[in-house]
């Protein structure tokens, strides 16, 4: 790797040349080190410290207590609200991430065509993302009001029964997932669109010559070609989905996830333990359990997506990926 640090001094003396060589070797590490230093400070340290807190009795106000071993973990795993929160989290995650990725893919596919006023369309799908989650929650809270909400008024107007958007477990998950989807679909669509634009156009031309329709082109060319991006979006939305907090927390005014905690997610459960029950030890244990759960889900997702990819039958996967990368390089250059 060449040093980008301006003109390298001419090696007049041996120690200088040694220094220059050392600089060439070490400077890249120096340049990337701020990230790792910052990560160690705001990423790794809190992670390890949370682990430390989780094996102690630790009250929010009173502070550190005795070493408790895995007692906090045992208490969390024995608490029915933990399992309830895990169920809710997974349910809301599935209801949001799956339709979200599919919708975003479809949207990106449409935006990738020759539309009039392309930039306008592309910008407008990002609009929901600009709105603060708290504002989204307030608006949707009104839309999904059980008695006087917009959706239920509409349902009743056409002679259907009102739905208990807050009281019914599944309905509340759907309502919360729709908030998440509203906010994130456009964002993911733009990421997909960027990847789609890098797909070499001649592939489509050849496919069209071979008689492939638009749908067939999308499934057989676009999807395989944007697979790395697809994986990236799936993993980030997995992480985001399992950490969902603002939307369910603000879905009602108490912030505990409903009268039966029917939409309390793991992060809300963590918050309740830490800041309402004031038990930081247990809250930290939940944080670590959540971390492990996310790792498991991410690995599972990666494995599933790769399996799905190989099942789709791409004999020249590596070659295609390379050509895509080259195309992306051209795209940037042009």
């Amino acid at each position: 790797m060449a040093s980008p640090a301006g003109p390298t001094p001419r090696p007049r003396r041996p120690w200088r040349s040694r220094l220059a060589r050392w600089e060439a070797k070490a400077s890249p590490y120096l340049y990337v080190s701020p990230f790792f230093l910052l990560f160690a400070l705001v990423g790794l340290f809190p992670l390890l410290y949370t682990a430390y807190v989780s094996v102690h009795a630790w009250s929010l106000l009173g502070g550190q207590g005795d070493f408790a071993g895995l007692d906090n973990y045992r208490r969390v795993l024995e608490d029915r609200f933990f399992w309830n929160a895990l169920r809710n989290t997974v349910s809301i995650f599935l209801l949001s991430s799956v339709p979200q990725v599919l919708l975003a893919l479809g949207l990106a596919g449409l935006l990738d065509t020759q539309l009039r006023g392309r930039t306008l369309w592309r910008m407008s799908v990002l609009l929901p993302f600009v709105v603060a989650p708290a504002a989204v929650a307030l608006i949707f809270g009104n839309v999904f009001g059980d008695r006087y909400g917009l959706v239920n008024s509409g349902l009743e107007a056409i002679g259907l029964d009102a739905i208990g958007w807050h009281t019914n477990t599944l309905a509340s998950h759907v309502a919360i997932a729709s908030m998440v989807n509203w906010r994130w679909t456009g964002y993911n669509a733009l990421i997909f669109l960027a990847a789609m634009q890098a797909v070499p156009r001649d592939l489509y031309e050849s496919a069209a010559l071979d008689g492939a329709g638009k749908v067939r082109q999308f499934v057989s060319i676009t999807l395989p070609m944007i697979r790395p991006t697809l994986l990236f979006v799936i993993i980030t939305s997995t992480i985001g989905g399992l950490q969902i907090f603002a939307e369910p927390r603000l879905f009602d005014t108490q912030g505990l996830g409903g009268s039966d905690r029917q939409y309390q997610t793991l992060t809300m459960y963590l918050w309740e333990l830490g800041w309402r029950v004031r038990d930081l030890g247990m809250a930290s244990a939940v944080a670590w359990l959540l971390f492990l759960i996310i790792v498991v889900f991410a690995v599972l997702n990666l494995w599933l997506s790769q399996r799905a990819g190989s099942l789709a039958g791409r004999p020249h996967g590596r070659a295609v990926r390379r050509s895509r990368r080259d195309a992306a390089g051209e795209g940037v250059a042009s």
Binding site: P46, Y49, A57, G65, D66
Partner: peptide, 24 residues
């Protein structure tokens, strides 16, 4: 036991806690 633990905690290590938690 929770309450008892918490009371013990408080007496024992408040100062150390404060410094560490402040950081974390």
């Amino acid at each position: 036991g929770v309450t008892r633990d918490q009371k013990d905690d408080r007496r024992r290590v408040r100062a150390a806690t404060g410094a560490l938690l402040a950081l974390a």
